[in-house]
């Protein structure tokens, strides 16, 4: 474990969630990666904690070692990825939404076309978080599971 194709696994991680200001810069970065201005394909969501007076947080995939979302996928479009998390094959996906239901932390989002948007841990957004909440780092999957979201 901890290796993917002989390399260490890198994942999007949270350094200090209490610093999140809810700006959504990360969320816009994620869709921009795909050439979109907006958030349709974003695998990360910035939310307030029942109103901004209570602060803000982000929700994204925490790279399960045994991903429930992949287990319920009827077509194999959502597949477990070695070292944790998932790989998503859009062309195999029928948009049934099972994966969206299955993720306990609600980290899969529904795009306008009904298909899922999920974080694939590419790390692009981390550079756009201005407040030190996110980072892209090498992790031990087991250690990563212990990170408090």
């Amino acid at each position: 474990m901890g290796e993917e194709n002989g390399k260490k696994v890198r994942r999007l991680v949270i350094k200090d969630i209490e610093k999140c200001v809810g700006c959504g810069m990360c969320m816009y970065a994620c869709s921009r990666r795909k050439g979109e201005a907006g958030i349709d394909s974003s695998g990360i969501l910035a939310v307030s904690l029942s109103g901004f007076e209570r602060g803000a947080t982000v929700i994204f995939c925490r790279a399960c070692v045994e991903p429930p979302c992949a287990q319920v996928c009827p077509t194999g479009a959502m597949r477990p990825r070695e070292g944790g998390g998932v790989i998503y094959h859009e062309t195999d996906c029928i948009g049934c939404g099972n994966c969206i239901e299955a993720c306990t932390i609600n980290a899969i989002f529904r795009r306008r076309d009904g298909k899922p948007a999920v974080c694939i841990h590419c790390g692009y957004c981390a550079d756009y978080c201005p407040h030190g909440v996110l980072a892209y780092e090498e992790v031990e999957p087991e250690a990563f599971r212990r990170v408090i979201v």
């Binding site: 700006c23 959504g24 201005p130």
Partner: peptide, 16 residues
């Protein structure tokens, strides 16, 4: 007590 931001703004000028 904290700072928050408008959506898509890195500055977070909202002082609370």
């Amino acid at each position: 007590g904290r700072r928050v931001a408008c959506s898509h703004c890195p500055v977070a000028c909202i002082h609370i």
